[in-house]
Write a protein that binds this DNA or RNA. Structure first.
Length: 715
DNA sequence: GCTGATTGTCTTTTT
DNA sequence: GACAATCAGC
């Protein structure tokens, strides 16, 4: 214990050992925020003798939860399991599972993810005859969330709707609420809103939870929204210790309701409040920090704070301007190759981007050049179709809800088409039944009825047999006997083979869960999964990590590439439409991105036409906000007058494009590749060659030094 | 009812 | 360049 305190600097030590009841830590990027938080919790246990059970730590993501638990376990192995570490949504579930009965609602609710929400909205469109092109899912998800947060019920939403367009949305909202009730499914917003309602209407329940958690810690406090703050406030009494940690410069979730003023005004709600500012950075070189500082300085609405470090000066930030998207990706791949050759490991490198779609050109090149990578985001593990299908089968053994039923009723094909499904749904809704219950009464064709009855019997069988099986066996039985596995196995589609692999991972996952929680059942597993979007893989593999800036929050890497730094992309046009507020959030996002880097930071962008913004791409304004002293500009340049690209472009030194042609290969050479088969070299650019392979591989650009590539001797 | 082809639309970020 | 809705043909 003493040695963990000895490693702290003066400010950190103050933050960890303070006696104040209300504490606000303003912790800059890389200032040892997580370390302070975990050391504080251990300090409470070891020095103050606090029962770990009374300590609550609220984190922002499941990833952060695991990280914190890991660190606490390392220091106090026997106590760590008793500290409650949880995302705020999981905390809501925990509270509601125990006490939602006090609101007159049963405890067996299911949790809807966004996919489930969309399924209901899709139903509503069908019922109300609306066009999903005119009413996009994103629009309705926003609308529904806003109304919920405003505590508007259906009729109230209808009253406030002025135009026919708004009224249609209000009708979808009403449908959504009705369906939620029928399905007894809560969405993410409900988890917080119902908890708040529960605490407000039942003081004795509130008091119970207040007694339970006497030391409350909140991480990433700058990204908290009003409802979450209310929930936290309701958990506190005049005796509660409240400890919040955050960095206003890293607020990047205002689009989701995060309110930057909560951390700024915290001291008004909780007085007297001690504030500790941690502005010594332990992560990055001075060069990287200076670059990041020079950008964030342009934000007007902020608490001024400049990070400093005793780490070395480091090298200048590199800005590479590529002539095209592909060459931008190529630059990244090439630099990764060079770093790797110098002994860097893939794990310590990351590529960050503003939006998921920007990963595509990178993936292509990484595959071609055999650079191992993992991608976070996009379609997450538990959101994959095959995983959702498998989980839906499992849900049928527990809740028989319509959303799951609709997913699996004709997968694999059982001859039950859209018409039968609609008829079944209509009949079920008209009679207040679930689709599962309505199966034998609804008006159906004999063929469909037969298929559905057989399926229902199967489900009932599984349900009974599952009582004596472990979780893993249940899953495997269902996958096998439903024919789902056979459906994929008989397919020749490469994607289906990948799906089988994913299902194997799910089996591993449920197996691991069963081992870790021997007394937990299917219900518990499904509940855990509902709040997780991704598998929490141990990152022991050797691969470059690709992710959005948002999901990189809290992480750090030796070498960071931030790609797609074009105006309109990053900062995104969508945000800039919100005026200064939007632009400042984008700037904070850039600040988060830049401060992930420990050793080297590369910023790249490309020219050409962007179909995202419908215009020619120009370098991001954030690039020009970096003081010239800290940045090295290479690649294609645009004259400062920003004239049109055709005459405004010129080539500066690039360090990579024009290189001596590879000595071994020349265009026209016949080659063979261990994976791709025979091919012909089309062009050579340095050590990379574009090679046309036989169908189905087609044209690829790969490293000509790659060991799997061989020259075919002329015959 | 199923399949494959075609058209049109939309691309921000997540628990 | 993905996804959903629609349509034609089996």
């Amino acid at each position: 214990m003493d040695e963990s305190l000895a490693k702290l600097n003066k400010d950190q030590l103050q933050a960890v050992t303070t006696k104040s009841q209300y504490v606000r830590i303003v912790a800059g990027a890389g200032s040892g925020k997580t370390r302070v938080l975990t050391t504080r919790i251990i300090f409470l246990i070891n020095q103050w003798g606090i029962d770990p059970h009374k300590i609550l730590a609220i984190t922002f993501t499941n990833k952060a939860t695991n990280e914190m638990r890991k660190r606490i376990t390392a220091m106090v192995p026997d106590q760590a399991g008793r500290v409650v570490i949880s995302t705020i949504h999981s905390l809501g579930v925990r509270i509601l599972r125990e006490d939602i009965g006090s609101l007159g609602m049963p405890r067996n609710f299911t949790i809807m993810d966004q996919e489930d929400q969309k399924a209901i909205i899709r139903e509503a469109y069908k019922q109300l005859d609306l066009d999903s092109k005119q009413y996009t899912f994103g629009m309705l998800l926003d609308y529904i969330g806003n109304n919920k947060y405003a505590q508007f019920d259906g009729p109230r939403a209808m009253e406030t709707a002025m135009s026919p367009f708004e009224k249609a949305k209000a009708r979808v909202y009403q449908y959504y609420l009705d369906r939620q009730k029928e399905l007894y499914a809560l969405d993410f917003d409900d988890l917080l809103l119902l908890t708040v309602r529960l605490f407000k209407s039942r003081p004795e329940i509130r008091a119970k939870w207040q007694r339970r958690f006497q030391f409350i810690h909140v991480d990433e406090f700058q990204d908290i929204d009003d409802t979450q703050y209310e929930m936290i406030k309701l958990l506190t009494t005049p005796d509660t210790y409240l400890y919040v940690v955050g960095d206003p410069d890293q607020t990047i979730y205002t689009w989701r309701g995060a309110n930057i003023n909560i951390i700024i005004n915290f001291e008004k709600d909780f007085t007297p409040c001690e504030t500790v500012v941690l502005d010594r950075n332990y992560r990055s070189t001075q060069m990287i920090l200076s670059a990041a500082n020079s950008v964030i300085r342009y934000n007007r609405n902020r608490l001024k704070k400049d990070l400093y470090t005793a780490n070395g000066e480091g090298t200048k930030v590199v800005h590479f301007a590529a002539p095209s998207e592909d060459s931008e990706a190529m630059f990244v791949a090439q630099r990764i190759g060079e770093l790797r050759a110098k002994g860097a490991s893939y794990n310590d490198m990351a590529v960050l981007y503003r939006s998921n779609y920007l990963s595509r050109p990178l993936e292509k090149i990484f595959i071609d050049m055999s650079i191992p990578y993992v991608i976070y985001g996009g379609i997450r593990f538990y959101e994959r179709a095959e995983i959702k299908d498998a989980l839906s089968y499992l849900r049928m053994l527990v809740t028989q809800d319509d959303l799951s039923y609709k997913r699996i009723i004709n997968v694999p094909k059982r001859g039950v088409g859209t018409k039968s499904i609609d008829d079944l749904l209509d009949y079920a809704r008209a009679n207040g039944l679930s689709m599962y219950q309505a199966a034998d009464k609804a008006p159906l064709t004999p063929k469909a009825r037969k298929a559905i009855t057989a399926l229902n019997q199967q489900i009932e069988q599984w349900r009974l047999r599952s009582q004596d099986m472990d979780l893993e066996t249940v899953l495997q039985t269902v996958l096998k006997e439903s024919g789902y596995k056979a459906m994929l196995e008989s397919s020749t589609d490469a994607f289906d083979q990948e799906r089988l692999e994913n299902l194997k991972e799910l089996v591993d996952d449920i197996h691991g869960f069963g081992q870790a929680n021997p007394e937990a059942g299917l219900t518990e597993y499904l509940q855990m999964v509902a709040l997780y979007t991704d598998l929490q893989n141990e990152d022991d593999g050797q691969h470059v990590q690709l992710m959005t800036v948002h999901s990189a929050k809290g992480l750090e890497f030796d070498d960071v590439f931030v790609v797609g730094l074009s105006d309109g992309v990053f900062p995104s046009d969508k945000s800039m439409n919100d005026g200064l507020k939007g632009l400042e959030e984008e700037r904070r996002l850039a600040y988060v991105a830049f401060t992930r880097a420990k050793q080297r930071l590369y910023l790249t962008e490309s020219r050409g036409y962007s179909f995202a913004t419908n215009s020619s791409k120009m370098p991001s304004r954030f690039l020009s906000e970096i003081d010239a002293d800290f940045i090295d500009n290479i690649g294609v340049a645009v004259r400062p007058d920003h004239e049109g690209l055709a005459d405004g472009t010129e080539l500066m030194h690039t360090g990579f494009i024009p290189k001596a042609p590879n000595a071994k290969y020349k265009p026209g050479d016949q080659v063979t590749h261990d994976d791709f088969g025979d091919g012909v070299v089309i062009s050579v650019n340095g050590n990379f060659g574009t090679i046309a392979f036989a169908y189905p591989v087609r044209t690829k650009t790969i490293s000509l030094n790659f060991p799997k590539l061989h020259k075919k001797e002329a015959s």
